[in-house]
């Protein structure tokens, strides 16, 4: 048996490309959930009443210090117990989103804490409602500086999507495992999956660096 079979490689490449789409889909939806939920967590923790802020802080620490894999199992197996049937992909994306929302909330917190006091005082002086203060004054200033940090978590989330294979979502890793067990050849599929991840991660890291440079120039110039 050859160590590396090119014919086999080209046979499985289309299958893996299709699975890569599922991986990207999970990444994007998961990150949208994480970005929105993370902002809500950060605002709740920083500006919410004490009965909300303290348990929320505990919850965030809890999610951050327990493994994503167990959280995925928890959501996938526990929801049906309460009579809510949930698809593997939905459960996985929900777990990914929730897990990374706690990381993102810390990033947002740093961004929100960096807004000068004067901005808040000016909004009060202008008699703005809290909703408008956040939407029109605080968030537009808080987000741009933290975009690179959020980008890093997007890459991290992308690299955690293979965990969805544990609940049989047909993403890259699961597809590679199925190909491997059908053909008794694991070398090509798993190496290819590694290469695909490496390429995507390097591209994403380069994009994050570009955005960072662009933002720095824009913030300095304005």
């Amino acid at each position: 048996m050859k160590f590396w079979d090119w014919k086999f490689t080209f046979e499985i490449l289309p299958l893996l490309a299709k699975a890569a789409l599922v991986t990207l889909e999970a990444t994007l939806i998961g990150f949208v959930v994480a970005a929105i939920l993370g902002l809500a967590f950060a605002i709740g923790r920083m500006f919410g009443p004490k009965w909300l802020a303290v348990p929320l802080a505990g919850f965030i620490e809890f999610i951050r210090s327990t493994p994503l894999l167990i959280q995925i199992f928890f959501i996938y197996f526990v929801f049906p117990e309460f009579g809510v049937s949930i698809e593997a992909m939905t459960a996985g994306v929900l777990a990914l989103g929730l897990h990374y929302a706690t990381y993102c909330s810390e990033v947002y917190r740093a961004g929100l804490a960096n807004i000068p006091r004067g901005q808040w005082e000016a909004s009060i002086a202008l008699n703005m409602s809290p909703f408008h203060v956040f939407r029109d004054v605080i968030i537009p200033q808080a987000i741009p500086p933290i975009v690179p940090a959020l980008g890093n978590y997007l890459v991290a989330l992308f690299k955690d999507t293979p965990l969805l294979s544990a609940i049989a979502v047909l993403e890259l890793m699961q597809t590679a495992k199925i190909i491997g067990s059908e053909n008794f050849r694991y070398t090509e599929p798993i190496t290819l999956v590694g290469l695909i991840f490496l390429i995507f991660s390097l591209i994403a890291a380069a994009v994050v660096r570009l955005v960072e440079a662009w933002l720095r120039r824009r913030i300095i110039h304005s």
Binding site: K159, D160, T161, P162, L163, S165, M173, A176, K177, G180, Y186, T187, I190, T191, V193, G194, F197, L198, S201, L202, A205
Partner: peptide, 17 residues
């Protein structure tokens, strides 16, 4: 390589390859 790929992929690679 180790920062750019997923931990699970690395684990499987060492295990199977």
């Amino acid at each position: 390589i180790f920062r750019g790929t997923s931990a699970l992929v690395q684990l499987f690679w060492l295990f199977f390859v």
